[in-house]
């Protein structure tokens, strides 16, 4: 594989992260309300904590360079050391893993997010894997049986699934599940229970995971099915499929050995492009099911006006999506010999 190709992708991902960091910094300082400053006066914080924030964010220092709070009218002579600015302090704190202190719990944001990151990965991972497997399976069936009632039924189902608001589907499943199937009303594990063994603990968690994962799967299933179907129809129209038939391969062998790998290439791209929506799904599902993940953290932080937490959760989500995207690009280059061999 060409090293310059890899380096190019990596450099682009880093540039995007830098952009997100800037966005994250300025959003929270420029938009009306200036939450960082108002945060200093947040009555929930002790005097010492407020002082610590002032020092941590360098609130007595200029925002980025000559400008007092980005107001160009107030710019004075540019004698300020760029290392003595709020932006520099912000980036330096980030690099040391310091995302600030939660207004709500007075604990470091990075610690709190670290606890939640894995819960989100668990939920998204399970949901995505199921949605991809089922969606691709249905898509393959629909493409193979193109223009039959099976195909049409799969299409209608996909369009309907795409149109369902994630949070509403979650609510309805939660309503039905908790009433008629005795499933838990939310959370990740039944609180206050002393589990007799690891298996009891895992099975309790699986019961909590069932509905959120199901919601997730249904919402993403439809889109993956539609994409798989149309890509596969394209691939199956290619000349090399006719060659494969002429060679005496049967339909199953052709699908398995000739069509799927080629259809996987666009699938990987689409899955990568979809990662942003994945996160949107997580925010809604974690909110409905009180799942202690990053998406839920965003919702809670909004309700509690816990700005450091909101800022940190957004940054972590965005950076995760960027890395996942990079991963998908690399996977694509491994799958496609036309890139790999260059």
């Amino acid at each position: 594989m060409r090293a310059s190709y890899l380096l190019g992708k990596l450099a682009w991902a880093l540039f995007t992260i830098l952009f997100v960091i800037c966005l994250n910094f300025f959003l929270f300082r420029v938009l009306p309300g200036d939450p960082v400053r108002s945060g200093v006066r947040d009555p929930r914080l002790t005097q010492e904590a407020q002082q610590a924030i002032r020092e941590r964010f360098g609130l007595d220092k200029p925002v980025i360079n000559c400008f007092e709070s980005l107001n160009p009218v107030k710019s004075g002579p540019c004698l300020i050391n760029p290392f003595e600015t709020q932006f520099f302090l912000y980036v330096r704190n980030l690099l040391t893993g310091d995302l600030g202190i939660s207004y709500h719990t007075n604990r470091p944001v990075s610690t709190m997010l670290g606890e939640r990151l894995w819960n989100t990965i668990l939920l998204i991972g399970a949901g995505q894997i199921l949605a991809i497997i089922l969606g691709m399976g249905l898509g393959i069936l629909a493409a193979w049986k193109a223009r039959t009632p099976i195909d049409f039924g799969a299409l209608l189902f996909s369009l309907l699934a795409w149109s369902l608001p994630t949070f509403w589907l979650g609510i309805i499943l939660l309503f039905a599940g908790s009433r008629y199937f005795n499933l838990p009303l939310g959370g990740m594990i039944t609180p206050g229970v002393n589990f007799p063994g690891a298996w009891a603990r895992v099975s309790d968690m699986l019961r909590h995971m069932l509905l959120p994962t199901l919601t997730y799967t249904i919402v993403f299933l439809g889109e993956y099915m539609l994409i798989m179907r149309s890509t596969l129809v394209d691939v199956l129209s290619e000349d090399y499929i006719l060659t494969a038939r002429a060679k005496g391969l049967n339909h199953f062998q052709i699908l398995k050995d000739h069509a799927l790998k080629n259809a996987m290439l666009p699938m990987v791209t689409i899955i990568a492009l979809n990662l942003g929506f994945t996160v949107a799904g997580a925010v809604q599902i974690e909110t409905v099911f009180s799942w202690p993940g990053l998406g839920g953290a965003i919702f809670e932080a909004v309700g509690r006006r816990d700005y450091p937490m909101l800022q940190g959760a957004f940054l972590l989500l965005a950076v995760s999506v960027i890395f996942a995207n990079l991963g998908a690009e690399l996977l694509y280059s491994v799958l496609d010999p036309r890139i790999r061999a260059e």
């Binding site: 929270f28 938009l31 996160v279 949107a280 925010v283 909004v302 959760a313 965005a318 999506v321 960027i322």
Partner: peptide, 15 residues
């Protein structure tokens, strides 16, 4: 690449 919904949530929450 930047996830839409969290960004929208952040901006609307701040304004």
């Amino acid at each position: 690449v930047i996830p839409d919904l969290p960004l929208i949530v952040v901006i609307v929450a701040l304004t």
